[in-house]
């Protein structure tokens, strides 16, 4: 039986070993092994937008019959449906399709913004990035587009976004 006296050298050595091991375990896994999030010579394209599509139908004038059925305080001449168009998006990289999808408008009445966030790892270097979108179901095909040659450095992030105040699709 080992004497548990704190002055017993065996106890001291055993406790020192324990605390040393404890410290080593904490230290090791607090930084090791290193994690490679993105390989060398790779870059990232982030497709991200929060964008209100066009209304599915245009505003129209109410007929006199329709107006008559409404309460006097509710008789607005115009009726504007709230539902917005989903955003259809397609990205091509060097002529090859990278992504194609549809972002539905948020909200129970589908009157919110369509949002999307996607990340694509691509080789660093020069690429032809082509982005096409449709934000109006009443228009056939893509009504928004941008194509640009981009030189991506290793680890660089290219953000593809769309905003009306930026003139549509833009790269950042």
């Amino acid at each position: 039986m080992v004497s548990k006296s704190p002055t017993n050298p065996v106890v001291l050595v055993a406790q020192a070993l324990f605390y040393g091991l404890f410290a080593v375990i904490i230290a090791i896994f607090s930084t090791w092994p290193e994690y490679t999030h993105l390989g060398p010579d790779r870059a990232l394209i982030k497709l991200s937008f929060s964008y209100h599509g066009e209304f599915v139908t245009e505003c129209r004038e109410r007929t006199p019959e329709e107006l008559a059925k409404l309460a006097p305080n509710m008789r607005a001449a115009k009726v504007c449906p709230r539902e917005r168009s989903p955003i259809t998006v397609r990205i091509d990289l060097d002529g090859q399709p990278l992504y194609e999808g549809v972002a539905q408008p948020a909200g129970l009445s589908k009157d919110g913004a369509s949002t999307l966030y996607k990340r694509f790892e691509v080789p660093a270097g020069e690429h032809l990035v082509s982005v096409k979108m449709n934000d109006n179901v009443r228009v056939q095909g893509f009504n928004l587009a941008r194509e640009e040659k981009m030189a991506l450095k290793p680890a660089q992030i290219l953000v593809v976004d769309v905003r009306k105040d930026h003139g549509g699709i833009f790269f950042e």
Binding site: S30, T31, W32, Y35, H37, L38, P154, I157
Partner: peptide, 23 residues
């Protein structure tokens, strides 16, 4: 730096192991 992706990281595995697991 929001314009570049962190590449090699010395992550704290006690807490941050969930991120590599997710990727």
């Amino acid at each position: 730096d929001l314009s570049v992706v962190p590449t090699v990281l010395h992550i704290d595995w006690y807490y941050l192991f969930i991120h590599p697991l997710m990727y």
